[in-house]
């Protein structure tokens, strides 16, 4: 039962996103570009940090290998 509700909720979100994308794509191409572009910029920046952690774990960074978790 909860799974069905979850799927329905996700479907609703998806439908909303599609509607937004279609409206924005039709009438506001630059708005659509902003939505996609900003998401991409954030994700690439995040990916850069994740890559940093991978490089750090592999010893590819010049920084001493101490996990900076003070608290």
């Amino acid at each position: 039962m909860t799974n069905i509700i979850r799927i329905l909720a996700l479907a609703a979100v998806l439908a909303l996103a599609l509607m937004l994308a279609v409206v924005a794509g039709d009438f506001g191409p630059w708005y659509f570009a902003w939505l996609v572009g900003t998401t991409m910029i954030v994700l690439i920046s995040v990916a850069g940090a994740v890559l940093f952690e991978t490089q750090h774990a592999a010893g590819d960074t010049p920084y001493e290998h101490s996990a900076p978790t003070e608290t």
Binding site: I41, S45, G48, A49
Partner: peptide
Amino acid sequence: HREFAARSFRMAALFGIISSLAVVTL
């Protein structure tokens, strides 16, 4: 604060390169 700065730098630089290219396009 090298560990702190290197991570911030990485994120900001990637954030900035795409933004600056896009700002020219617009």
